[in-house]
Design a protein around this nucleic acid. Structure first.
Lengths: 201, 201
DNA sequence: CCATTTGCCTATGACCCATAGGCTCTGCAT
DNA sequence: ATGCAGAGCCTATGGGTCATAGGCAAATGG
């Protein structure tokens, strides 16, 4: 019997395709084994089990999105960069729903550390660089940007914006405008007492 | 043998508790049956199956959060209302992680229509009322607010903000400040051509 | 060319979902 | 009171999944 040429790498890629095609829940050792005309127990030589397999898909997805986002924001700054970053995430999620879903899985600490997760935070900081935010403000901004992009992506993918006017794209542009305004204000103003705002001069 | 007093209502509540305690994935007909010292097939008289059960948990959670959010925003407006709305969602998710997770499940159309889902959109519009936004702007605002709150809640629940400075609460206040600024600007200005902004006068 | 490693196998057991069909208790009408 | 219909929970069954244990054979390297 010819060998199937299995490896963690190959299995992870195939699992990712399976996830995109039939949903993350369909990523099962048995289903994956069928794709390679192999029995399920054979896969345990390459991956530690179902949870491990899904985490590998998540790590793959995090790495892929990091690359795409990095390409998208290269050479851009300010509002343009915000738009590009968000769009990269949204496009990836739309093109690879299963992979995107995997990125929302809780990862083991060790796996998370070895993943491209931190890279995403760096990318957000890079995009915000042109706003010249003070240290803590930059963190606040990273969090707000991250929450907005993630929430937007999830809602869009869940069909929350579908079949309703106006177009989601229009709303997205307005959202980016809004974030750009906020970060611009943070860059050129200082918080007074946590409640109000004051232009620097 | 005494009857267990099962019903869709009772089962759903118990399933919700199970989800909060051990995660949504632990919500299984077998596990639920054990809680009532009953055999799994008995549950099929009350719920249509695993998927139906989880959707009922989602519907319950949507209804519960709608009530909490409504209470939280009652009598508030502007920034205060934004803060209260977001906090209500975040607190609910923190207190009931399993239920919250259930709300991210895709619902059957019929179930979604009968759920409190639309009520949430109404609540968001109510919170935004004091900004006096024009029709389309209000929709844009609902979407931005919804995405931000959802993304923030998910990231916080996933531990994204944990063990890192500054405190997540501080970031949240800044985020609310930012949204308040955006909506205030939208209320007192009109978009010119979808790109720029101009104060009304 | 033989020994070791590697790759995939069968066998097994536990857990889950879901359906089919049966028994018993409850409650109501006569 | 009694008899009956239906509600409520049961056992039996079949199919799916995960995961482990242990075995045979192909590939590899000294």
């Amino acid at each position: 019997m010819p060998r199937a040429g299995l490896s963690a790498e190959v299995l992870t890629r195939s699992a990712a395709e399976l996830a995109d095609e039939e949903g993350l829940a369909a990523v099962t050792l048995a289903a994956l084994a069928r794709r390679f005309h192999v029995k399920a127990p054979s896969l345990y030589a390459h991956v530690a089990g179902n949870r491990d397999l899904k985490q590998r898909v998540a790590v793959l997805a995090l790495a892929e999105t990091a690359v795409r986002v990095a390409e998208a924001v290269a050479g851009r700054s300010g509002r343009d960069a915000l738009d590009a970053l968000g769009r990269a995430y949204r496009d990836y999620a739309a093109a690879h729903p299963g992979r995107h879903q995997a990125t929302t899985l809780p990862l083991d600490d060790a796996v998370a550390r070895a993943s491209a997760g931190p890279r995403h935070a760096e990318l957000a900081r890079a995009v915000l660089r042109s706003y010249a935010l003070a240290g803590p403000d930059e963190t606040h901004a990273v969090r707000l940007l991250g929450a907005t992009v993630r929430g937007w992506t999830d809602l869009e993918l869940a069909g929350g914006f579908a079949r309703s006017e106006p177009d989601a794209e229009e709303s997205w542009q307005r959202a980016v405008d809004g974030l750009d305004q906020i970060f611009t204000a943070w860059g050129s103003a200082r918080p007074v007492d946590g409640l109000g705002w004051q232009r620097r001069d």
